[in-house]
């Protein structure tokens, strides 16, 4: 018997993505991201910072994923290159990822079926993000403000993962929205 209101999966179009590497202690990097993105670079492991339509997710001690409105990538890349004096790598990876929102009362159950990470709100409250195993692929899972989750995964796995999520969510009832 389906448990209402189930799970909602909705792909998020129009997201640009940049992979950023640099020295977290480099003031020019911190200033440049603050100026360019309007948000701090998160230095707390497995956390994110955001401002408006832009989000910076911690991926590693010197690595972040910058999520910006599509079309902003080259402006952000250029401004960072101009402003940062320390080690830097900026790569537009927008084409490589699918972004989706996973919401509904049983969203966490779908995550539990897919990943060995502990998604309990005590361990994974809004403000956290985690790269982990997701089914037989991987994903970046972001706990966002409203208690739902953003999933970011590699485009080539999208057909597989959407099938997987639909199957995992079936017992809860799941409207699927793919773009």
């Amino acid at each position: 018997m389906p448990e209402a209101p189930g799970v909602e999966y909705r792909e998020i179009p129009g997201r640009g993505c940049l992979n950023l590497r640099g020295d977290a202690d480099d003031p020019t990097l911190r200033d440049a991201t603050a100026t360019t993105l309007g948000t701090e670079l998160p230095t707390e492991p497995c956390s994110w910072q955001s401002s408006g339509d832009t989000r910076a997710c911690w991926l590693g001690p010197d690595e972040w994923l910058l999520i910006v409105p599509d079309g902003e990538q080259s402006r952000v890349e250029q401004q960072l290159r101009e402003a940062v004096s320390g080690p830097l790598s900026v790569v537009d990876v927008s084409g490589g990822f699918v972004h989706a929102n996973l919401g509904g009362d049983n969203a966490a159950k779908v995550l539990q079926k897919s990943s060995p990470y502990d998604f309990h709100p005590r361990n994974f409250p809004p403000g956290r993000c985690v790269q982990t195993v997701f089914a037989q692929a991987g994903a970046l899972v972001v706990a966002i403000e409203d208690g739902s989750f953003v999933l970011i995964f590699r485009r080539s796995y999208a057909d597989y993962l959407v099938h997987w999520i639909a199957d995992a969510a079936e017992e809860y009832g799941y409207p699927m929205h793919r773009t």
Partner: peptide, 17 residues
């Protein structure tokens, strides 16, 4: 578990699949 049939081994698809 659910790793059977179509999901036994993930398929990766190119954008032109």
């Amino acid at each position: 578990g659910r790793d059977t049939g179509d999901m036994f081994d993930p398929e990766r698809h190119t954008p032109m699949h």
